[in-house]
Amino acid sequence: MIHERIPPKTPNKNAHIESYHSIIEQECYQRHEFETYQQAYIIVSDFIQDYNRIRIHGSIYDLSPYEYMDAIKQGTIKAKTIKV
């Protein structure tokens, strides 16, 4: 992974990460009150695992990421093209 800074005044180049931060704020941080760092770490880690493995994503045919990858490997769906 390479850390890359975006040019000033170009939020559209950061849309995916901004969207993710908005989702984690609404669906995780606002729903929990953390007493300790350890508790926060566990809850946020569980959310991230759920988001990356189980949660249905509308942008990938309403499948979870694991279901999407399995469907691509089996050839039942075509992989989506990422526009950069």
Rank of each mutant, 00 (worst) to 15 (best):
A79I: 12
K13D: 11
D62N: 13
E67W: 03
Y41E: 14
S59F: 02
I60G: 07
T76E: 09
Y51T: 09
F34E: 08
R55D: 02
V84R: 02
E18D: 09
H57P: 04
P7D: 14
Y66G: 00
S59Y: 07
H57S: 04
Y66T: 14
T76V: 13
N12I: 13
A71N: 04
R55I: 02
I72H: 06
C28A: 08
A15W: 06
D70S: 08
N52H: 08
Q30D: 11
I77R: 03
T81C: 05
H32K: 05
Q26K: 15
S45M: 08
I54Y: 02
H16R: 14
Y68L: 01
V84Q: 01
K83Q: 08
E33V: 13
K13R: 15
S64E: 04
E33T: 13
I24G: 10
Q49W: 10
F34H: 06
Y41A: 12
Y68D: 02
H21Y: 11
S22P: 01
R53V: 03
Y29R: 06
M1Q: 03
A79K: 15
Q30H: 13
N52L: 08
P7Y: 13
K83C: 00
K80S: 04
I6E: 04
C28E: 07
D46G: 01
H16T: 11
T10R: 15
E67L: 02
L63Q: 11
E35K: 15
E4A: 12
I60T: 07
D46C: 05
G75P: 06
